[in-house]
Nucleic acid binder design. Structure first.
Lengths: 96, 96
DNA sequence: TAAAGTAGTTTATTTTATAAACCAAATTTT
DNA sequence: AAAATTTGGTTTATAAAATAAACTACTTTA
């Protein structure tokens, strides 16, 4: 009847992160913080979880002298997102 | 950018409960347990939360000698559900 | 009448989300 | 050139949630 909702994606902030990354191919920490409105601490934790799941990649480098963290969604992440949306449909019926 | 997801509805089981109640007008405890696959304990707790939020009504009576708990969605519950779906769209883009 | 089943509730445990505190380096102010 | 502030984060602590396990009360069946 109802499909299971991937608990890693069924989180407001992680869903927002994935949503941003789906639309931009690459986003840095500050951009993600602005777009999602999250606190830096929360963002840091959730990015880590997404990376550990293999849904995003995180690269740390420098822009000039300042640290810069760049995130990209992976193919696996895209697939997981699509599956999450498909699962959601089983709850929302024709509404979506 | 992203709309807030009502935390009361952003829960797999509570969303499933609401989804069932939207489609049937009235459902008893056992039916909800079967449809959602939830344990009785979890279902009991989540029904309570939905009732306290005013999203469903719960009536307790008897079917013969056995207790029977009947649940209905309220207008407020329907409205909250619709709003939740609208908020979800901001995360899912054209996918829904 | 003892065992098993039904319909749930309550309580305890584990997970999760979030915020607060912190750190290191860079920049700005005095 | 110190001192204070800002930037870009991470780590740790706390609050909230989900879930399971244990329990209650009653009924049915053997």
């Amino acid at each position: 009847m109802f499909k299971e909702l991937n608990p890693l994606l069924h989180s407001e902030l992680r869903l927002a992160i994935m949503s941003v990354l789906l639309s931009v191919e690459s986003a840095d920490f500050v951009f993600l913080r602005e777009q999602t409105g999250a606190t830096a601490g929360n963002l840091s934790v959730q990015l880590d979880k997404l990376q550990k799941a293999g849904y995003i990649t995180i690269e740390k480098g420098f822009k000039g002298k300042m640290p810069r963290t760049t995130c990209c969604i992976t193919d696996e992440g895209i697939a997981a997102f699509e599956e999450y949306v498909a699962a959601l449909r089983s709850y929302l019926g024709k509404r979506v």
